[in-house]
């Protein structure tokens, strides 16, 4: 499709889109005056019934836990898709001759950048772990913390050591993290089926609100999601970096 044709089509469809947008916006509740009952009930019921203080996480891992299961597997499926799309093709080979010189754009990183990235690694790990395990108490949870955790190893790339990153987090380990996280979430749900006769039902003691171990299965769910997201994001990033740094055109 040529650019000209696309622009023509857009000009043709534009007025229709404008009408639909205006009609749609007209039906929205006025800003600040939302009257949906679902959220009000969740706000009122989740703290006493589930002992969670972050209602967003409580919704994510309790009321809408089944949706989160679907979200988990969307992530899992799409990461598998990326790995499949970026596989080593028949007319490609991996060029790992320059393992030690780390020949890439960040290879000439200054000493200051290298030290900073070294300091960043434990900080990112600590913050990520904190965000994952405090999901039911304060803003955060498995999805958010998992991304922060994945950012830790990526700091090694900033230090100009991509092959060290590959050694620390090889593809098989990342795939394992991704699968273990996704599987663990489904298995925790199975625990609900066994002990409370409803899939993904909260079956653990609820504990004291505001304590680290409270809200029943929510911290476990959060941990499972955190593990999966860490693996999934690192796998995606390293697949792309492999394409840029290792995979070469032409059979060996």
């Amino acid at each position: 499709m040529s650019r000209r044709f696309r622009l023509g089509l857009f000009a043709l469809a534009g007025p229709g889109l404008a009408v639909v947008l205006l009609l749609g916006m007209h039906g929205l509740p006025a800003f600040g005056h939302f009257r949906g009952l679902y959220g009000v009930l969740a706000n009122r019921l989740e703290p006493p019934l589930r002992h969670a203080t972050d209602i967003v996480t409580a919704l994510n891992f309790d009321l809408r836990a089944f949706d989160t299961l679907g979200e988990e597997f969307i992530l899992f499926g799409s990461v598998s898709g990326v790995a499949l799309l970026l596989r080593q093709l028949r007319d490609e080979h991996k060029d790992e001759r320059n393992r030690d010189v780390a020949d890439h754009r960040f290879a000439d990183a200054s000493d200051a950048l290298r030290v900073t990235s070294l300091i960043l690694i434990p900080l990112a790990f600590a913050l990520g772990a904190y965000v994952v395990v405090h999901g039911q108490l304060t803003p955060g949870g498995g999805f958010q913390g998992g991304v922060v955790l994945a950012a830790g190893p990526i700091a090694i790339l900033l230090a100009g050591r991509y092959f060290a990153l590959k050694a620390l987090a090889p593809a098989w380990a990342l795939e394992a993290l991704d699968s273990i996280g996704a599987g663990a979430y489904a298995l925790i749900g199975l625990g609900g089926l066994i002990f409370a006769s409803v899939y993904l039902q909260n079956f653990l003691p609820l504990g004291t609100p505001g304590k680290l171990l409270s809200a029943g299965t929510m911290p476990l769910n959060s941990l499972a999601v955190g593990i999966e997201v860490t693996g999934a994001f690192l796998l995606t990033w390293t697949e792309f970096l492999d394409q840029a740094l290792i995979v070469e055109r032409g059979a060996r």
Partner: peptide
């Protein structure tokens, strides 16, 4: 409190 459902 604001609606938590949309945030999820």
């Amino acid at each position: 409190l604001v609606d938590p459902v949309v945030q999820v």
